[in-house]
Design a protein around this nucleic acid. Structure first.
Length: 200
DNA sequence: AGGCCGATGCTCT
DNA sequence: GAGCATCGGCCTC
């Protein structure tokens, strides 16, 4: 394994982290799989604290959003709509809420296992397998058990579970990035805090 | 290609 | 009790 992104990467302004996570590789190790699942992040959104009306942390810390106030580099996973999970990487510094929602990715390795986890039939195209925040968590088997997991901790050896992030592949051209308003929210839709890789 | 809607249960007021 | 950082199916254009 190459060296994963360290805490210093995440301990910065949430918007910077959201933009720089585009093109990074998300690596997921699952029990019983000899090879990790690897995807390239292509859509993110930044969420902050009191100044962000759309953020779970807008009105302070609660049992659910506690991870957003903790140290950077950990996961903030929450359950929504009675059936879906969404995953964030915590940013800023301990005591200052912030997180980047991972909204979409392209599969680089482990396509068969990811298709199985997504429970899709053979007609579904690779391109749409992980193009949504709840599809991403389902396809990588991330749920509330992973809340507050430290993505900067050492990857597990053997057949344990782990998750970490690698910088963009240096052999790959940098992806052009589009910046837009966040989607799926009812407040602060004008904040341009969503980043999307322009593919092809 | 895009809009509407139901599913389904937790969180916060 | 209302709303939800969603998804997939079904409908119309």
């Amino acid at each position: 394994m190459e060296h994963a992104l360290e805490q210093a990467f995440f301990s910065r302004d949430t918007i910077i982290v959201a933009e720089q996570l585009i093109g990074c590789l998300l690596v997921r190790k699952l029990p019983g799989l000899d090879r990790p699942l690897i995807v390239r992040i292509n859509e993110t959104e930044a969420y902050k604290g009191a100044e962000d009306p759309a953020s779970h942390a807008h009105r302070g810390m609660t049992a659910r959003n506690r991870a957003m106030f903790g140290p950077p580099g950990r996961l903030y996973v929450y359950f929504t709509y009675g059936m879906h999970h969404c995953m964030n990487i915590v940013t800023e510094q301990a005591g200052v809420p912030g997180a980047v929602l991972l909204r979409g990715a392209a599969v680089l390795s482990g396509i068969d296992e990811i298709r199985k986890l997504r429970k899709v039939d053979a007609k579904v195209k690779d391109r749409v397998l992980l193009n949504g925040p709840a599809k991403l968590t389902q396809g990588l088997a991330v749920d509330l058990q992973d809340n507050e997991y430290d993505v900067c901790s050492k990857a597990p050896s053997g057949n344990g579970t782990g998750l970490w992030i690698l910088p963009p592949d240096p052999h790959h051209y940098a992806l052009p990035i589009q910046r837009t308003g966040r989607i799926g929210i009812s407040k602060a839709q004008d904040f341009p805090w969503r980043f999307v890789a322009i593919l092809n």
